[in-house]
Amino acid sequence: MTEEDSIFDPTLKKKKKKKKTFDIDAALAEGDTVESAPSAADELFKDDVDDLDLDLKKKKKKKKTFNLDDLDNALPDKEEGEGEGGNQDDVAMDDNFDLELDFSKAKKKKKKKKDLDELMAEADDKQEDKENVERLPDEVDESSVQWMSSDRDYTYEELLNRVFEIMRDKNPDMVAGKKQKFVMKPPQVVRIGTKKTSFANFTEICKTLHRQPKHLLDFLLAELGTSGSVDGNSQLIIKGRFQQKQIENVLRRYIKEYVTCHTCRSPDTILQKDTRLFFLQCETCGSRCSVASIKSGFQAVTSKRAAIRAKTA
């Protein structure tokens, strides 16, 4: 840090500090913890950094998804189309369009994944970060070679890249320990026939969350207002048709209520049953609070009444 400081002294320090606050805040203030009134300027800056951070990551991903072959394919095509004109243009347009479509699809997917990750206590992000760390040096070195020697104005992006790179380079522990995340795989949800849904990695998710399968099962079934059970392959079979994002939603609520600490949002918690109530004991901050009991409440009759009558009679 010492050499860099001498060059970069004022901006670097400032940025670093701010970045740090952002990270901690983001980690803590995720969800609905009310922050102790941050100043408007701070808020603004945080947003800024946040946006840029996301941009940055997106860009990285773009680069990753676009391999060289794609680019090679795309460029000559375009030139050809422009040079020859006529119906070649159409072909080129088509190609371009395809490419665009592909691209947007890929982007969307990535974006969606990121959304999920973020909301699901930011799973996988760690890996991403690692990737970034691994990937960044070459790229930044490359780009810095390009623009460090040139006379033009540096773009914000380039400078930000550089400062992030330096930060990561000098503080490897900051990347590793900046957020308490637990790796969370998205639920694998598959329809079985027309009336049932399989939640294939149910048991695995229970293990990741360190919760009893029965507890999560009770919650899922109560929330979805249906019935279901774990089968021999340790997958959960739920009656009714559910999509992955719906299950995800319910899981997210489960994590919020029964996994992450209500005070510090750390996922390092223990759920204990005391008399009739469940308590969430945090291993990080030591807080202990009761959590809502799982009740399915009123269940309307949805199956054929005649069938019920036949069963009970």
């Binding site: 207002g225 249906t226 048709r241 409440g297 269940q299 309307a300 949805t302």
Partner: peptide, 14 residues
Amino acid sequence: IRIQQRNGRKTLTT
């Protein structure tokens, strides 16, 4: 406020 699936795409709210 709960939702329950009925047969097919039908749901009901309680």
